[in-house]
Amino acid sequence: LEKNHGFFLVAATLATTKTYTAGLSPLGGRSYWYDNKGSHIAGDLVLRDKYP
């Protein structure tokens, strides 16, 4: 177990990074509005407008 300590640390770091990144990019691909149309402003979160 001590020989594999470095491997487990790297694997845990990669899993954490992947989970965090997946949370920031919701299904559908876009996290932020790209333009000013309707009631939203470019740069605002898409989820905030879709699910207030």
Rank of each mutant, 00 (worst) to 15 (best):
Gly43Tyr: 06
His5Gly: 13
Val10His: 05
Leu24Ile: 13
Val10Asp: 11
Tyr20Asp: 03
Asp44Lys: 00
Asn36Gly: 06
Ser25Leu: 13
Asp35Gly: 11
Ala12Gly: 07
Gly38Phe: 04
Thr19Ala: 09
Tyr34Pro: 15
Asp49Val: 01
Lys3Gln: 12
Gly28Asp: 02
Ala22Glu: 08
Ala11Ser: 03
Leu27Ala: 15
Ala42Trp: 06
Ala11Met: 05
Tyr34Ser: 15
Leu47Tyr: 12
His5Trp: 11
Asn36Arg: 12
Thr17Val: 01
Ile41Trp: 06
Pro26Trp: 12
Asp49Met: 04
Gly38Ala: 03
Ala12Thr: 08
Leu47Glu: 14
Arg48Thr: 02
Ala12Pro: 02
Pro52His: 11
Arg48Ile: 04
Gly29Pro: 00
Tyr34Asp: 11
Thr13Tyr: 06
Ser39Gln: 04
Ala15Ser: 05
Asn4Phe: 03
Pro52Phe: 11
Lys37Trp: 14
Asn4Lys: 05
Gly6Glu: 12
Leu45Pro: 00
Phe8Asn: 06
Leu9Asp: 07
Pro26Ile: 15
Ser31Arg: 02
Ala22Phe: 09
Lys50Trp: 07
Asp35Leu: 15
Pro52Asn: 10
Lys18Arg: 05
Ala42Cys: 10
Gly28Ile: 01
Ala12Arg: 02
Thr16Tyr: 07
Gly38Glu: 00
Leu24Gly: 11
Gly23His: 06
His5Asn: 12
Leu27Pro: 10
Ala15Thr: 08
Lys18Gln: 02
Pro52Leu: 15
Ala22Gln: 09
Leu27Ile: 15
Lys37Val: 08
Thr17Gly: 01
Lys37Arg: 12
Thr21His: 11
Trp33Asn: 04
Val46Tyr: 02
Thr16Ile: 06
Gly43Ser: 08
Asp44Trp: 01
Tyr20Phe: 11
Leu47His: 09
Ser25Phe: 10
Asp44Ala: 02
Gly38Met: 01
Val10Thr: 11
Asp35Cys: 13
Asp44Glu: 08
Gly28Asn: 03
Ala22Trp: 09
Pro26Thr: 14
Gly29Arg: 00
Gly6Thr: 11
Leu9Thr: 10
Ile41Lys: 14
Pro26Leu: 14
Tyr34Val: 13
Val10Arg: 07
Phe7Ser: 05
Asp35Ile: 14
Trp33Met: 08
Lys3Thr: 10
Asn36Asp: 12
Gly43Cys: 08
Tyr34Cys: 12
Ile41Met: 05
Val46Asn: 03
Lys18Gly: 03
Gly29Phe: 02
Leu9His: 09
Asp44Met: 01
Ser39His: 10
Trp33Val: 04
His5Glu: 14
Thr21Pro: 09
Ala12Ile: 08
Gly29His: 00
Tyr34Glu: 13
Thr16Asp: 03
Thr16Lys: 02
Leu47Gln: 12
Tyr51Gln: 13
Lys3Val: 10
Ala42Asp: 06
Phe8Val: 05
Val10Met: 13
Gly43Trp: 09
Gly29Glu: 01
Ala12Asp: 06
Ala22His: 07
Tyr34Lys: 15
Leu1Pro: 07
Asn36Leu: 12
Tyr34Leu: 12
Gly43Leu: 06
Leu1Val: 10
Glu2Asn: 06
Leu45Gly: 00
Leu27Thr: 15
Leu45Phe: 03
Asn4Thr: 08
Lys18Ala: 06
Val46Phe: 05
Trp33Leu: 06
Gly28Lys: 02
Asn4Asp: 05
Leu24Tyr: 11
Tyr34Thr: 14
Asn4Gln: 04
Val10Phe: 10
